[in-house]
Simulated scan of single mutants.
Amino acid sequence: MLGSGSRRTARQRRRLRSARAEASDRVARLEDEKRDLERKLEREHTNGPAHGDHSGDRLVAGSDERR
Rank of each mutant, 00 (worst) to 15 (best):
A19R: 06
S18F: 01
E33S: 02
R15S: 10
D25M: 05
S24A: 11
V27Q: 06
T9M: 12
S6Q: 15
A23I: 01
L16G: 15
D32A: 12
D32H: 08
E31P: 06
K34E: 15
R7P: 14
A21E: 05
R17M: 03
E22A: 13
S18E: 03
S4T: 12
R15G: 14
R8A: 07
A10C: 08
R13E: 05
D25A: 01
A10G: 04
V27P: 00
R13I: 08
A21N: 09
S18P: 01
G5D: 15
R20P: 02
D25H: 08
R17K: 08
A28Y: 04
A28Q: 03
E33G: 01
R29I: 00
A23K: 00
R17P: 04
R8H: 15
R13W: 06
R13Q: 08
R35E: 03
R7L: 13
A21V: 13
V27L: 11
S4A: 10
A23C: 02
A21M: 02
R7D: 15
R26Q: 06
A28C: 04
E22S: 13
E31C: 10
Q12N: 10
R15H: 13
R14G: 03
K34A: 15
R8V: 15
R11W: 10
L16E: 13
R35Y: 06
A28T: 09
R20Q: 04
G5L: 14
A10L: 05
G5V: 13
A21W: 01
R15V: 02
E31Q: 08
A21P: 03
D32I: 07
E33Y: 06
E33A: 09
A28K: 00
R26H: 07
A19D: 04
A23P: 03
G5H: 07
R35K: 05
S6L: 14
G5M: 09
S4K: 05
G3R: 15
A28F: 04
K34F: 10
R7H: 11
D32V: 09
R20M: 11
L16W: 13
R35S: 01
S24R: 00
R15F: 12
L16P: 07
A28L: 07
D25Y: 08
R14H: 09
L30H: 05
R17G: 10
T9I: 12
T9E: 04
A19Y: 03
S6F: 15
R17I: 10
V27R: 09
L16T: 06
A28N: 07
R26M: 04
